[in-house]
Simulated assay, not measured.
Amino acid sequence: MIRATARWLGSSAALLFVVTVLTFLLSTLAPGDAAKAILSGQTTSYTPEQYLQLRHALGIDQPLPVQYWHWLDGLLHGSLGTDLFSGQPIAEALNGRLAISLSIIVGTVVVSGIAGVGLGVYSAVRGGLSGRLVDGVSLLGLAAPNFWLALVLVEVFAVQFPIFPATGYVSFADDPGEWLRGLVLPVLTLSAGGTAFIARQTRDAMADVLTRGFVVALRAHGIPLRSIIFKHALRNAAIPVVTLLGLMFVSLLGGTVLVESVFAVPGLGQQAVTASSTHNLPMVEGVAFYFTLVVVVVNLLVDISYRLLNPKVRAA
């Protein structure tokens, strides 16, 4: 257990380092910089001297290794730096947005998991036409682009039938009902493809487990099929599904960028787009750091799930 924990800590630290270094390098390779963005927003013309002075004040005229070391030193002392435009601490600016993005991601994983597992189990047990129906639904869910589905959902459920808001976000603390209504369309948009993936994976895993000897023996002893499915078969089929849910959670970190833009939700994805367009390097680094932390935590939860579902993994 201690050795496994040490490996996890080492791999997590290495992942954080690699991601932040690559983010830093790729961000600095883009044309332009924050000084130009700031001066362009303040005045229509500026002198080269003003530009150089602002670059020096922001610290972006230093060599790249020096800039990264200053950022890393701040991180080791508990600071992600400050926003180059507003002067607000990065952590303070991102904490509220993290909760918004996680609301969409967790909601999508929960909806996709429940719907996908339900469809997959039903298809595996019934077979035949049900299996082909799941394949058809899966192809439909995978083929529908997120941006197109988002626009369709807005047109139907926010314009033609104004049931849910088309844009904006209300925090849970302010109004739980409006918070939930505001999440419905973004979550449905992202859940289509996820439900399709999980349904197919669940169906294949369940179909395999239902042919194993212990299931045949349980059915021969007169155990009800429902009890076999939910007490025995589903647990054995759950590991690949849990893996897919973990991968889906991680992939949604990027998927929220488009959805947050379409629905005008002020999450991390929208902040990443704004920071990248204005060359706000500390903010870009902060978003990348938060995303990587989420990946680390999700990997840990998936590993814990493996150990709970499979005693062999727990003993390893």
Score class of each variant (00 low, 15 high):
Ala173Tyr: 10
Ala166Lys: 02
Arg181Trp: 10
Arg126Val: 15
Phe157Val: 11
Leu308Asn: 10
Thr202Asn: 09
His77Gln: 13
Phe172Lys: 06
Ala196Tyr: 00
Asp135Ser: 09
Ala233Arg: 00
Ser40Asn: 10
Leu15Ile: 08
His279Asp: 07
Leu84Thr: 00
Trp179Leu: 08
Thr47Pro: 07
Gly41Gln: 04
Ser277Asp: 13
Lys36Thr: 15
Gly222Tyr: 11
Gln67Val: 01
Gln42Ala: 11
Gln50Glu: 14
Gly141His: 00
Thr47Tyr: 04
Asp208Trp: 01
Gly131Asp: 13
Tyr306Asp: 08
Asp208Val: 03
Ala13Thr: 15
Gly213Arg: 12
Met248Leu: 15
Val110Tyr: 13
Thr292Pro: 03
Gly59Asn: 07
Ser79Met: 09
Pro282Lys: 04
Arg212Tyr: 04
Val298Ala: 13
Leu140Gly: 10
Tyr46Met: 11
Phe289His: 02
Gln67Ala: 08
Leu129Phe: 13
Leu139Lys: 02
Gly141Val: 01
Leu185Met: 09
Gly168Ser: 09
Val298Lys: 01
Ser79Glu: 15
Thr243Lys: 02
Leu218Glu: 12
Gln160Ile: 05
Phe291Glu: 03
Gln201Phe: 05
Val125Met: 11
Ala275Ile: 05
Asn146Ser: 15
Val152Ala: 12
Leu153Ala: 06
Gly128Ser: 10
Ile60Glu: 05
Pro162Asp: 08
Asp135Val: 12
Val111Ile: 14
